[in-house]
């Protein structure tokens, strides 16, 4: 089974080496880093680690970087594509649980969920304010109730990756992907994962930007 790990990276020089090493230690060979126009040497660092590194000459956002990674992986004949963060928040040891349902049970796409497991500490304001709101907004746009939205850990079968073309360049791609799962009747499953928080991630302001992107996408595309 050809499993490709796609890592979008924007100014992640501090974490990228550790993330790649970790993945390699877990036996993943096909690692694709998509450097999204970083200015801190992420590209060069990733290159040193002997993995495939694609480069966006200008910053286009996480959604855009993921789609570039998908395109590349599909061209290389990937059978499963895993979306993995470059900031070290996700655990390489969780990937197996994400990929297994796709290989063994013909699930099209698995989505990591922080809430199905009790592991991982989350800031309280995130748990009780931002996430409930995000869930409602996500439902409004996608009609799919998920226990977790926007953590970005997911695995796609090649068929799913061919169908889900990400057009939301920035952070609204999370919702867009869920929307397309529904639209194309893909079989999905949520898988418990651990997310380590040392940075806050999406703030209220970031959330509003996502909402803006979603609305613009709905209105004019």
């Amino acid at each position: 089974m050809k499993i490709y790990i796609v890592i979008p990276a924007f100014n992640e020089a501090d974490h990228i080496t550790k993330v790649i090493t970790d993945l390699k230690n877990h036996g993943y060979e096909n690692i694709v880093v998509v450097d999204d126009g970083s200015t801190d040497g992420t590209f060069e660092l990733a290159k040193k680690n002997q993995v495939k590194v694609l480069q966006h000459v200008v910053n286009r956002g996480m959604g855009a970087a993921l789609q570039t990674g998908n395109d590349f992986a599909l061209k290389q004949g990937a059978e499963v594509i895993v979306h993995f963060d470059a900031d070290g928040q996700m655990l390489a040891s969780d990937i197996k649980n994400m990929v297994d349902p796709i290989i063994n049970e013909k699930i099209d796409i698995t989505l990591g969920s922080r809430f199905l497991s009790s592991k991982g500490e989350m800031p309280l304001s995130k748990k009780y304010i931002i996430h409930p709101l995000a869930k409602v907004i996500n439902y409004f746009f996608t009609r799919l109730w998920l226990s977790d939205v926007h953590n970005g850990f997911r695995a796609l079968s090649a068929q799913a990756a061919k169908k889900i073309i990400i057009t939301q360049d920035r952070m609204a791609h999370n919702t867009e992907i869920v929307e397309k799962i529904k639209k194309y009747h893909l079989k999905y499953r949520e898988v418990p994962v651990t997310i380590k928080y040392y940075e806050y991630g999406q703030s209220i302001g970031g959330g509003l930007k996502i909402l803006r992107d979603l609305l613009i996408g709905k209105l004019i595309r």
């Binding site: 966006h56 570039t68 395109d71």
Partner: peptide, 13 residues
């Protein structure tokens, strides 16, 4: 712009 950027990154490779 995204399309061009993506095309460039894939072509380079």
């Amino acid at each position: 712009i995204t399309k061009i950027t993506r095309h460039l990154s894939l072509r380079d490779n």
